[in-house]
């Protein structure tokens, strides 16, 4: 067992454990905190893949922005009532059985996984160029059109959110 495997094992174990904690906590704020720890470990997995830029963005965007918005929303809920509520619906064993069987179905094809062709960006090439440069080059040359399309879709979503949340002007005479 190499050092890398030990670290990978640790990160994988913590990710599974904290994910379970996220869905089982009664208090949503505690769930969010466990999710924060999970995000850090996911970022560490990206570091293992030499994807340092993605790791940093994972923390900045998911942990720093999206999760803070979750916290914001949770603060506006009535937490006292939320904690008192029954956490599970009566039919939870059925749901668990379905989830487990879907999980098993996904495990079966794992045996047939084949390693694909090695592309231009191997570990060596990325280490030479640094990950940020490599990612930027690929995104802005080979995948420029999909990248711009994705940004256009996000822009539409932003404009849509602004339009929806804007107050409507009162109709005259009311």
């Amino acid at each position: 067992m190499t050092l890398n495997q030990v670290f990978f094992g640790y990160f994988a174990f913590v990710i599974v454990l904290t994910s379970l904690l996220v869905v089982t906590r009664k208090n949503p704020v505690h769930s969010v905190l466990w999710m924060l720890i999970m995000f850090f470990h996911v970022a560490a997995l990206y570091l293992f893949l030499n994807a340092e830029f993605i790791a940093a963005i994972q923390i900045i965007v998911y942990a720093g922005a999206i999760l803070v918005l979750y916290v914001f929303v949770i603060f506006l809920l009535n937490l006292k009532q939320e904690i008192g509520d029954e956490q599970r619906v009566g039919e939870w064993p059925v749901g668990l059985a379905i989830a487990l069987s879907i999980g098993l179905l996904m495990l079966i094809p794992m045996a047939g996984i084949k390693v694909g062709m090695m592309g231009k960006w191997g570990v060596k090439a990325i280490e030479d160029e640094t990950h940020t440069v490599a990612l930027g080059k690929v995104l802005y040359t080979d995948y420029l059109l999909p990248f711009e399309l994705a940004s256009l879709i996000l822009l539409v979503a932003i404009v849509g959110a602004v339009v929806l949340s804007k107050k409507k002007k009162k109709v005259e005479g009311q």
Partner: peptide, 9 residues
């Protein structure tokens, strides 16, 4: 290599 992003994070 990502020192600047690290501080922002």
């Amino acid at each position: 290599n990502i020192g600047l992003l690290f501080i922002l994070a």
